[in-house]
Amino acid sequence: MENLLEVKNLCKKYIGFELKNINFSIPKGMIIGLIGENGAGKTTTIKAMLNIINKDEGEVKIFDLDLHQNEKQIKQDIAVVLDDSFLSEYLNPKSINKIMKNFYPSWDEKLYLKYLEKFNLPINKISKEFSNGMKMKLKIATALSHKPKLLILDEPTSGLDPVARNDILDIFQEFIEDGEHSILLSSHITSDLEHIADYIIFINNGEIIFKKSKDELIENFGIVRCDEKDFKSFKKNDYIKYKKNKYEYDVLVENKADFKRKYSISVIDKPTIEDIMLIYIKGEK
């Protein structure tokens, strides 16, 4: 499978935080979800891999080219949507059109206007007067209008109401349909990723905990809800982590079928991505 993006051994050190040996790739036609709690390193990973911040070590290849040596060329074909950063809020969508067509020869003014209309965004109103949802829609409209091959989104659905969120997720789904485009989507709203992501990368404390296909996570992983007596009968190597609740234990297992067989347990719950993330972060071993 051809990769649009490859990150190898990406490291970045700050006082009190370190991004450690980040490795992952994004194949063509896939939506990759980057999950993790706030401060886990999702945004730092995106910033370091895009050369927004200077990385300490590592290699980033996009479209098979080294990003450091071909930054301008590569960035022609990618689009980035950041939760906390965009052009000045004193600009209106009309001005943004005038600006952006200088950066991208492939900028499609008609497509941009079509998105503005679709998202009900007034063309002459400065974005400072927009709601959070409208601001995010403007960022997404801007990102899609030069027809990028790779879309990188940092928390794109935060601040959106459920209807707008659904509309935008549909647009993302359309974007990758031809099998030539890919999306890296960082979010702490894991239900969105359950909707659309093909693969999930879970990052915690600056480290990748796992990279797995969403189906594998939901179908193979399981949560055993049991009492203390049952829990004590489990071997440590047979589960990932557990969380002790008031009356029961939630035990996260990687292969629920094997676990069922080994311990003769009849019911193992299907976990959500949020359940998995929570037990990984809050659980013990």
């Binding site: 910033k47 895009l50 980035v80 950066f103």
Partner: peptide, 8 residues
């Protein structure tokens, strides 16, 4: 931050 994501 956003400007650094553009082809410049």
């Amino acid at each position: 931050t956003y400007i650094r994501t553009l082809p410049v």
